[in-house]
Design a protein around this nucleic acid. Structure first.
Lengths: 223, 223
DNA sequence: TATGATTTTTAGATTAGTCTAAAAATAATT
DNA sequence: AATTATTTTTAGACTAATCTAAAAATCATA
């Protein structure tokens, strides 16, 4: 595992993120936008990272990560998400306040620190937004998820992810008692508008609009 | 409070440290040695920091910190020592393993992070080596301390600092059951070699050589 | 107090990361 | 298919932090 600068790590993380949510190759402009730099700077950096075997790059053709590049990105993501868990669970920050701080902390590289932090947090598998945390080998469990909106009545599961992190949305979830890890039972689904009636943690009953339920991911409990 | 680069913070911290343990002014060479750079680089940086009003500097005359510079250094020290406490108390690192990691963490500046960390740790007043932790205004309590070696029999107190952080020394303290925060009673002092007989936490009895007792600092309990 | 030793500063170069502006390549559209 | 629009790369310059080598100042001592 090579030692990378904070800057190189940030580029790698951004490229990984773009690849995950898009196509095979990412363009220079997209990377520039996400990293807050200009296309010219990105071009330079791509050459550097390609020389380090972290991505494959041919002029004008966009980039994709190599095996090693992807693994490196996953280990950065691991640090980022572990710190997110720490900030929310231990320091009691809100979900929507932790991104900037975790982005600084993720670049502290001492490997024993990451291991112990993981242990201290109880080896969490998901971060506070429900995104999976890679293990120390850069792998994560691919437990299949469903969008809450598509779960039919009678099924139960656990909320594992939120696909909209606007502060307003998160506050709303708070209000109706939904959080990452909450046990959810779909009691009924209104045909007319697609809204859902839920039981949360076996008690509280909540009604969610179709729009809200479309932004929640769950893992179903075997029934 | 200005925003400083990690590099600038490191210089400031080093200068503060040298001033604390030495004379009024520090020389360029000493700073270079402590920061792991060369005198030429230090000269450049001194100009920069002087321009920012953090230290007063006249060519060839050495430097001292301004009011603002000292306060800034104390706030860096605060972050450093809070992370030390976290690493030892929560992540279970040994005293002698935390320096390098805390030095990385100390540069994460988000002020709410520092506040919440402090709160989470229970507003500790001393770090794991017993050094005081400045408050958010850059001040610390100047409770008078004594060197354990100079405490006469019959007195009791609390261990607050260790003035030798070699791994061997720390391991030895562990073995005899002494740690920062331990309550200590001086039972007897052997005239001949200056060694001490102690009761630790009201139970265990330990014998310490003069050399060891000279490296422990305590705050006496009012008696 | 002069002279040699040491410390500090300057001058000039280097590296990583960034930028703007212009050139080159690719993509889109008439 | 040719021309225009967009994207990407290159060229050249800038900044922060560093270095080496040489000059300048201070210190120490004969």
């Amino acid at each position: 595992m090579q030692v990378l600068s904070t800057t190189e790590e940030n580029y790698l993380k951004s490229i990984f993120q773009l690849l995950k949510e898009g196509s095979e190759k990412v363009g220079t402009n997209d990377i520039a936008e996400l990293t807050g730099t200009k296309a010219a700077s990105v071009s330079d950096m791509l050459k550097k990272l390609a020389a380090k075997q972290l991505l494959s790059y041919q002029k004008y053709q966009g980039v994709s990560l190599t095996e090693e590049g992807a693994k490196t990105a996953l280990l950065i993501l691991r640090r980022y998400r572990l710190w997110e868990v720490f900030l929310v669970e231990k320091l009691k920050f809100n979900w929507d306040e932790v991104a900037a701080i975790a982005e600084e902390l993720e670049h502290v590289k001492a490997p024993p620190l990451v291991r112990r932090l993981d242990e201290y947090l109880g080896f969490p598998k998901f971060d506070p937004h429900g995104d999976p945390i890679p293990d120390e080998f850069g792998e994560w469990s691919h437990t299949p998820r469903m969008i809450l909106q598509e779960v039919s009545p009678g099924n139960a599961g656990k909320v594992v992810a939120v696909t909209n992190s606007s502060a307003a949305f998160l506050k709303y979830l708070d209000k109706v008692g939904i959080y990452i890890g909450a046990r959810i039972e779909v009691v009924d689904k209104v045909e007319f508008d697609g809204s859902l009636e839920l039981r949360v943690d076996g008690e509280k009953t909540s009604f969610l609009s179709r729009e809200v339920a479309a932004n929640l991911q769950v893992i179903l409990h075997p029934s």
